[in-house]
Amino acid sequence: MNQSEQKQIMMNNLNAKIKARSAILKEAKIHETEDGFTYIDADLPSYNFNVVTLPETNRPLNPNTFKEIMAYYNSRKYPINVWCWSQQTDIITLFKEAELKDYGTDYLGMIAELRSFRPIVPDPDADCHFEKASSPEQLVTFGNILSSLYAGSNEEKQIQAYFEKAAQSCLLEDSRFQHVIGYYQGKPVSIGSIFFSDSVAGLYDIATLESERGKGLGTKLTSYLLNSAKGKGAAYCTLQASPGAENIYRKLGFDTIDRLKVFVNFE
Score class of each variant (00 low, 15 high):
N74Q: 05
S75C: 01
S75A: 00
P79V: 07
N81T: 06
V82A: 06
V82S: 06
W83V: 07
C84E: 13
C84Q: 12
C84H: 10
Q87N: 04
T89S: 14
I91E: 14
L94P: 07
F95K: 04
F95L: 04
F95P: 03
E99W: 12
K101G: 05
D102N: 14
D102Q: 09
G104H: 04
G104L: 05
T105N: 10
L108T: 10
M110C: 12
E113T: 07
L114P: 05
R115D: 15
R115V: 11
S116Q: 09
S116M: 04
P119V: 05
P119M: 03
V121P: 07
P124Y: 15
D125K: 14
A126T: 09
D127S: 15
C128K: 10
C128M: 10
C128F: 12
C128W: 09
H129S: 14
F130H: 13
F130S: 12
E131Q: 10
E131Y: 09
E131V: 06
K132C: 08
S134Q: 02
S134D: 02
S135M: 14
L139H: 06
V140K: 15
T141S: 08
F142K: 05
G143S: 04
I145E: 04
I145D: 04
L146N: 03
L146K: 06
L146I: 15
S148V: 10
L149V: 05
L149F: 11
Y150P: 11
A151P: 12
A151Q: 15
E155M: 03
E155K: 01
K157S: 09
K157E: 02
K157Y: 01
K157N: 06
K157H: 03
Q158S: 06
Q158T: 02
Q158K: 03
A161H: 00
F163V: 09
E164L: 00
K165M: 13
A166M: 04
A166T: 06
A166G: 01
A166L: 04
A167I: 05
S169N: 05
C170I: 13
C170T: 13
L171C: 12
L171E: 11
